[in-house]
Amino acid sequence: MQSVGQKDTGPELAVRRALHRLGYRFRLHAKKLPGRPDIVFPSRHKVVFIHGCFWHGHNCSKGKLPKSRNEYWIPKIEANKARDERTINALREAGWESLVVWQCQVADLDSAVASIRHFLGPPGTAPEAAEKFAE
C-alpha cells in the first residue's frame, strides 16, 4: 500500500489531459491552499479534488473496505473522510469553491468532464482573482 501515489494518479492525469484539451489552464497541488487540491483554477477561485474511492470512503464497488483488519481500516478511512470535510470547509471559508470527482466517475470520462465544465463555466479568461492567489 505504501507504493500507492498521492499525485499524478491515473484518474487525475486523465481529467487533467481532458481539461487542458478543452482550453482550461490550471495549477497543480497548490501548497498555499488547505489540502493541496489536485487541480486549482486560481482566477476562478475553484478547485477540483480527484478522490480514490477506496482511500476516501466512497460508497461504490471500488470503495468497499477489505474483509480483514477492520480495526485498522475503518478508523483510517473515517479519518480520511473527516479530513476531507475539514479541508473543503477551510477552502469555503477562504472563498474557494470545491468539486470532488471520484475515481469511479472517471471511468466515464466524458460525463466527469461535463460535470467539471458545469462547475467551472466556459474556458477562457476569468475574473482577476488570480492576483489574490499570487500574493
Results as ranks from 00 to 15, higher is better:
Q2N: 00
S3Y: 04
V4T: 04
T9P: 09
P11G: 13
E12D: 09
V15T: 12
V15S: 11
R16W: 05
A18H: 04
R21K: 15
G23N: 02
R25A: 01
R25I: 00
R27D: 06
R27E: 11
K32D: 03
L33G: 08
R36Q: 13
D38G: 09
D38A: 05
F41V: 06
V47Q: 04
V47P: 06
F49V: 03
G52I: 08
C53I: 12
C53E: 08
C53A: 11
F54I: 04
H56W: 10
G57I: 14
N59K: 14
K62A: 11
G63T: 10
G63C: 09
P66L: 01
K67L: 04
N70I: 01
I74F: 01
P75C: 03
I77Y: 10
R83V: 01
E85S: 12
R86Q: 14
R86G: 09
R86D: 13
T87Q: 05
R92D: 15
A94I: 05
A94V: 05
G95T: 12
S98G: 02
S98Q: 03
L99N: 02
V101Y: 09
C104S: 13
C104E: 06
Q105M: 14
V106P: 13
V106K: 09
D108E: 12
L109V: 07
V113M: 11
A114Y: 02
A114N: 08
S115P: 00
I116K: 02
F119L: 06
F119P: 01
P123R: 00
A126R: 07
P127R: 00
P127E: 02
E128K: 00
A130D: 11
A130L: 12
K132V: 06
F133G: 07
